[in-house]
């Protein structure tokens, strides 16, 4: 019984792996979706945006983020040594979901003009190397409510 279940799980994983390989070869077009876009409240003039970027097609890369709510948006990630760095962009490999989460990679907004209260919504445009730009709505949540989700 347990072995049978394991077998089924194995098959599902293998099928998923195969689908991943087939649908995101180097030539395939990126198929990108952005979910769960959220930000903390503004602190000083900055705020951090977190989101999930899913790519079911070929590999791509976020090259720029802009928002009318901020004078500048920067992708912050960690380098090989685990240090937080401002990076040029963010890879979104084919067949993957890249999750920007509290305590990890995020989009830092600078020069945020309005307060950003929990419940507020503001737009962000994400530009990719290959995929067409995506406009997403970011929902503001209380900073303390971001604490629980940061660690897996």
């Amino acid at each position: 019984m347990a072995l049978g279940l394991l077998g089924v799980v194995g098959l599902v994983l293998a099928a998923a792996a195969l689908w991943t390989v087939v649908s995101n070869g180097p030539g395939a077009a990126p198929e990108i979706r952005v979910d769960r876009a959220r930000s903390g409240e503004r602190v000083g003039t900055t705020a951090a945006v977190y989101l999930d970027v899913s790519n079911e097609g070929g590999g791509d890369r976020i090259v720029r983020v802009t928002s009318p709510a901020a004078s500048r948006a920067l992708v912050h990630g960690t380098d090989d040594a685990g240090m937080m760095q401002t990076s040029e962009g963010l890879d979104v490999p084919g067949g993957s979901t890249v999750r920007l989460v509290p305590g990890g990679e995020h989009v830092m907004l600078e020069g945020v003009g309005s307060r950003l209260e929990p419940g507020d919504v503001f737009p962000v445009r994400i530009e990719f190397e290959r995929h067409a730009p995506l406009d997403v709505e970011v929902r503001v949540v209380a900073l303390e409510d971001l604490a629980g989700e940061g660690t897996p």
Binding site: G40, A48, L109
Partner: peptide
Amino acid sequence: NCADVCPI
């Protein structure tokens, strides 16, 4: 200037 860890 820490927008992520410190304010949370």
